[in-house]
Design a protein around this nucleic acid. Structure first.
Length: 499
RNA sequence: GGUCCUUUGGCCGAGUGGCUAGGCAGAGCUCUGCAAAAGCUCGUACAGCGGUUCGAAUCCGCUAGGGACCUCCA
């Protein structure tokens, strides 16, 4: 089997993945800011890195997956209102800040569950790690790379850049950064405009505030990730993931802080997912063009022509490579919906055949046998090539006609050797469930409904055997009108699906 | 303005210089009481111009369009 290669944003190339500690992987992914509801764009990194997590686990690594919850809030506009998102919203909604944060955290967890993402190993909150953040800031001051002004602490970027490669991750030139003109209040506190806040003095109206060596305030927005990653993964860890839009300044600053504090570059492999766009533009709050996850699930956003099942969205995301932009459209989602259903139907048929069949020791159709084996074995190859889920899915779709033909007996099951059939079944099952993390879209029907359906199917079958097509068609047509589709299978059975 | 990325068939999207990914939609056929589903067959696309090469969607240059970051951002 080939080696796992990961595209490292820091090096701008695919590199063979070698963990620091053999057999173990430390992975940190920037989590949500729970000052509001998550939207479709947010779903992408969590689905992407969920698959990364699942795949690394499949490869046999013991993975510690850390994903933070940013509940401390950051500046709306630095210095302007001296108010962070969380506290501002809290006043509007007449809620305690922590109550608000809890509400959106719960909503986030619920959505992640809908997407069938595995919970991270550790999900630390920023508010729960104020002590660690303060400790880290003190360390940076002690090292001489930060300075205090009026109860705020800033990181000295110019000094850092003199001996370190600030800007390498995001491809920025330090001179340009120093020149960038941007007039904001509070800017004059900084020695240089490229400097960023490690700790901010809190104005009286600021609700979220903590005691610190520099007075009452709150942490700057990069320090939490550095502090929590260091605490749970060590000074240097394997993978850091997040959206491309976080490369600068967030990740760049994270590198600087951690490097000064821990005397070593914090991350071996930086991974960044691309954006979800809508009409070619990045979906995001600044553009006010986002669709929240609950809206996606219930179809309540005006942009949507219908509701989309979370699994359809997951599938939609996985059909594209994570480093490409993914354009949202109803047409694209609906294509995914149909595609996923077709894929899942074939998978279920495969499971059913697995219960009875088998081929012999020899393949009845050597070419077919070989093709199936190749398609199935390529799953790992594609995943090893920087997690090409799109290609894995393409191969799965190539297997669909083979599976369906065996189900319809157009191709005898014995075309494949017993060993190949077994491999097809186990690999397909492993990938669709455990690695891609897909699930059935159809609602889990309850026993009573199943009984009713079976009754109708039996009545219709009897009618058909009497050639009473009026009755049989009535049953089927009425059910179709209700959104239940009856299908007479080739084997004489009748199956049904819900719209 | 600076830095970087991108442009693939009706739509969405893979694409490692040579062997036309895949999905959705569409057409035809087979199967079928009729449907539906399924199976088979069909579209030879790579923004434009020029260059490198025996050979380019894939490398280089120019032109045009789109986008991202530089500010909170997944």
């Amino acid at each position: 089997m080939s080696e796992l290669k990961v595209y490292n944003s820091y090096a701008r190339e695919k590199q063979v993945f070698t963990p620091i500690t053999p057999g173990h992987v430390g992975m940190y992914v920037c989590g949500p800011t729970v000052s509001g509801e998550s939207h479709l764009g947010h779903a992408r990194p969590y689905i992407t890195f969920d698959v990364v997590y699942r795949y690394l686990t499949y490869l046999g690594y013991k993975v510690r997956y850390v994903r933070n919850i940013t509940d401390a809030g950051h500046f709306e506009e630095e210095g302007r209102e001296a108010e962070d998102k969380v506290s501002k919203k809290a006043i509007l909604e007449k809620l305690e800040p922590m109550e608000l944060v809890q509400k959106y955290t719960n909503l986030f967890h619920w959505a992640m569950q809908q997407f069938n993402t595995l919970p991270p190993s550790i999900e630390p909150t920023a508010t729960g790690h104020i002590v660690e953040q303060i400790g880290m800031i003190q360390e940076i001051i002690r090292a001489g790379y930060a300075y205090e002004v009026n109860g705020s602490v800033y990181f000295d970027v110019k000094k850092y850049a003199a001996s370190h490669d600030y800007g390498k991750l995001s491809g920025r030139v330090i001179e340009d950064l120093l020149e960038t003109t941007r007039d904001l209040e509070g800017q004059e506190e900084k020695r240089d405009r490229a400097d960023f806040a490690l700790w901010k003095n809190a104005a009286p109206e600021h609700i979220m505030r903590w005691q610190s060596p520099w007075g009452v305030g709150f942490p700057g927005w990069h320090i939490e990730c550095s502090a929590m990653a260091t605490k749970y993964l060590g000074s240097q860890f394997d993978i850091h993931g997040g959206g491309m839009d976080l490369m600068f300044p967030h990740h760049e600053s994270e590198i600087a802080q951690s490097t000064i504090c821990n005397h070593v570059a914090p991350v071996r492999y930086w991974m960044h997912n691309n954006m979800i766009t809508i009409d070619g533009k990045k979906m995001g709050k600044s553009y006010n063009n986002y669709i929240t996850l609950t809206q996606m699930f219930d179809g309540s956003n005006p942009v949507l022509t219908k509701a989309y099942h979370p699994m359809v969205i997951r599938f939609f995301v996985l059909q594209t490579h994570y480093r490409s932009t993914l354009d949202f459209s109803n047409d694209a989602l609906q294509a995914s919906e149909k595609g996923l259903r077709r894929l899942w139907d074939a998978y279920e048929a495969l499971e059913k055949m697995g219960q009875q069949s088998t081929g012999g020791a020899q393949a009845g159709d050597a070419a077919m046998d070989e093709k199936v084996l190749r398609l199935v074995n390529e799953f790992d190859e594609f995943m090893n090539d920087d997690f090409s889920t799109a290609k894995v899915l393409a191969n799965m779709f190539e297997l669909v006609p083979v599976i369906n033909s065996m189900k319809d007996k157009t191709i005898p099951v014995t075309a494949l050797s017993a060993a190949t059939f077994e491999r097809l079944l186990t690999r397909f099952r492993l990938y669709i469930n455990d690695i891609l993390g897909l699930k059935s879209v159809t609602e889990a029907d309850n026993d009573r409904l199943q009984g009713v359906m079976q009754l109708l199917i039996d009545i219709r079958k009897e009618a058909k055997s009497r050639k009473d097509f009026a009755t049989s068609d009535k049953i089927r047509n009425q059910l179709t009108a209700l959104g239940i589709l009856l299908k007479d299978e080739k084997d004489g059975n009748t199956s049904y699906t819900f719209d």
